[in-house]
Write a protein that binds this DNA or RNA. Structure first.
Length: 461
RNA sequence: GGCUGGGUGGCAGAGUGGUCAUGCAGCGGUCUGCAACACCGUUUACGCCGGUUCGAUUCCGACCCCAGCCUCCA
């Protein structure tokens, strides 16, 4: 088996992945802040992480996969001047912050299930780990990396000589060009470890601490929880590209100060999905959810396939046109696989080429191109193609084995008309057959005569 | 303005110092009662200007444009 190579943002290069403990991988993925639904851009990152997980397991590693849920402390501004997102959302919707967190956590998990991602071994919520976070801050305080202002305990980024290395930050340049309010912070890159509750208003989420009642800063949860579940130095930490300059930079700073490690051996980042040349942002309000796609007639697998066509380290453009293109491609692939019948033996030649692609920093577009080469390969018999594709699908996760041509969820009235049309066609009464097709169309369905019989699909509106 | 990354054919999107990415769409066929589906064949490309080289889309430099972060963020 070819060695697995992955791109490490910390070193800015592709290098061989060798686990710290033989045969095992500690994988920590930054999860959602549960104040709203996840949009399809968010989900692209989790699909990348799912591919990573699957490739690691394909290589024979046991993956200890941890995903956190941020349900407190993430401010509306990363400059620590904004409001807690959970509290804000709770106030706006008139709901309890705790209920809100549960609701959106479950919605998020449901999306991941629809997308056929492998469940993490551990889900961890920030609010369930307040003690660990306080202990982490106490440790930082003991080691002299903190200072106190009127609204919280802050991390002194100036105490580290390589602060910002992950993002290649020009710290001096940041100071010169800073447009953010410094407040009582001593330096722009300093950040909150613990925030005090405002005496004037009652927070729904707050805890006692050595520094008074308040709540943890956003970054400390990941350092504290990853240390608890994976240790002070583990294999891979991932998240979205936007986390490179602030969130992950600060996680590294905290852990470096407290534990003396850079937290993870590999730092990996999924890149943004763009819509009309701009990233999809939760704050704009009009973002696309997985459910939006499903309502428009696409399946979760269509979106999964769509994401597989681009490398995880490339920003990708979303459009309905390209989603439709990939829906068509996947439908054809399903049909091919179905017609190939029972699986035979896996082609070792194709499998070797496949592994070469996925082990070269998860090159899914290449792996997918290989699938189409195989589809059109006259040298291979159907059983071999089927077995090989099913093997590949352990990585793709497109649920190819389960697919079959279905007419499920089509109203009985439409099915009756389709039956009548089939009879008319058998009688060679073409006029009657076309009339029935028009009637089916009026009910919102299209009928096509495939080799497996009539195929009925909802018409695009 | 500072920092990070990118500009590939109608769309999406790989890759490489000199022979094909791939998918969708288009075009021409086979099939079909007509269509659609499926299949076969096929057209269009590497932002701009210099440099290195026998040869650059691929390496180097300048320029233009785009995205991300610095302000909410996967």
């Amino acid at each position: 088996m070819l060695p697995l190579k992955l791109f490490d943002t910390y070193e800015r290069r592709v290098r061989e992945f060798i686990p710290l403990v033989e045969g095992e991988v500690g994988l920590y993925a930054c999860g959602p802040t549960v104040y709203n639904y996840a949009h399809i851009g968010n989900l692209r990152t989790y699909l990348f992480e799912d591919c990573l997980r699957r490739v690691l397991e394909f290589n024979g590693f046991k993956v200890n996969h941890v995903v956190n849920i941020t349900d407190v402390g993430h401010l509306t501004s990363d400059a620590d001047t904004g409001e807690d997102k959970m509290e804000l959302s709770a106030r706006e919707t008139g709901r309890d912050a705790w209920q809100l967190a549960d609701f959106y956590s479950e919605a998020f998990k449901a999306d991941l299930i629809h997308l056929n991602t492998l469940a993490p071994k551990i889900w961890c919520r920030a609010t369930d780990h307040i003690v660990e976070q306080i202990e982490f801050v106490v440790d930082l305080e003991t080691k002299g990396y903190t200072y106190r202002t009127s609204d919280g305990i802050y991390f002194n980024s100036r105490k580290l000589n390589n602060y910002g290395y992950l993002a290649r930050l020009d710290v001096d340049g940041l100071q010169a060009g800073a447009r953010v309010q410094l407040g009582e912070r001593q330096f722009v890159t300093d950040f909150a470890l613990w925030k005090f509750s405002n005496a004037k208003e009652q927070r729904q989420m707050e805890w006692d601490s050595p520094w008074g009642v308040g709540f943890p800063g956003w970054h400390i949860e990941c350092s504290a929880m990853s240390a608890k579940y994976l240790g002070d130095f583990f294999d891979i930490h991932c998240g979205g590209e936007d986390h490179i300059p602030i969130h992950h930079t600060n996680e590294i700073a905290q852990t470096e100060a407290s534990r003396g490690t850079r937290l993870a051996n590999f730092w990996m980042h999924g890149y943004f999905l763009q819509v009309k040349n701009a990233k999809m942002a939760k704050s704009t309000g009009d973002f696309l959810r997985l459910e939006t796609l499903i309502e428009a007639g696409y399946s979760a697998m269509d979106y999964r396939y769509f994401c597989l066509t681009a490398h995880y380290r490339s920003q990708m453009s979303f459009s309905w046109e390209s989603l439709t293109a990939n829906q068509t491609a996947l439908a054809r692939l399903y049909l091919h696989a179905y017609e190939w019948g029972a699986p035979g033996d896996v082609s070792s030649d194709y499998l070797d080429r496949f592994i070469a692609f996925i082990n070269e920093d998860l090159n899914m577009p290449r792996a997918l191109a290989l699938v189409w080469d195989m589809v059109r390969d006259d040298e291979l018999d159907p059983g071999t193609k089927k077995a090989t594709l099913l093997k590949f699908d352990e990585i793709f996760g497109l649920q190819i084995a389960a697919w079959q041509p279905g007419i499920s969820e089509v109203p009985q009235a439409v099915l009756d008309l389709a039956d009548a049309r089939t009879q008319a066609r058998a009688d060679k009464d073409w006029q009657r057959a076309d009339e029935l097709r028009d009637q089916i169309a009026d009910l919102g369905y299209a009928v096509e005569d495939t080799r497996e019989g009539p195929k009925i699909t909802p018409r695009a509106t």
